[in-house]
């Protein structure tokens, strides 16, 4: 029943989105040692509170976004595009309106 304000499409029902995972994870370089990858892939926090997570607007613009959500109340504090380059795109789109 969550509503997510997609930066590209506007507010939509969460059923249009696919859940990704913990957005705070910094994935190691592909040639990094296994222990770094084990840390990134398996050693996850199970946060009761506000966490950063990735979602994809699968049934919409298909863009990946980073959502700051409270796992207890489902309150969403912020939504931003996952790819920093899209900020410029959004800003330019605003200019044309």
């Amino acid at each position: 029943m969550i509503r997510i304000n997609c930066p590209f499409c506007g507010e939509r029902d969460h059923s249009e989105f696919g859940y990704g995972g913990d957005a705070s994870i910094q994935y190691p370089a592909l040639d990094a040692p296994a222990k770094d990858w084990i840390e990134a892939v398996f050693q996850r926090e199970n946060i009761a509170g506000v966490q950063q997570e990735t979602w994809q607007h699968t049934s919409g613009c298909r863009m990946w976004i980073v959502v700051e959500r409270n796992t207890i109340t489902h309150e969403i504090h912020s939504v931003k595009p996952a790819h920093p380059g899209t900020k410029t795109l959004l800003a330019n789109a605003g200019d044309h309106q």
């Binding site: 994935y27 990735t54 790819h83 380059g85």
Partner: peptide
Amino acid sequence: MVWLEELLQTRWH
């Protein structure tokens, strides 16, 4: 498809 988009948008900017 989702996986390729995820890699490009969230990891390999």
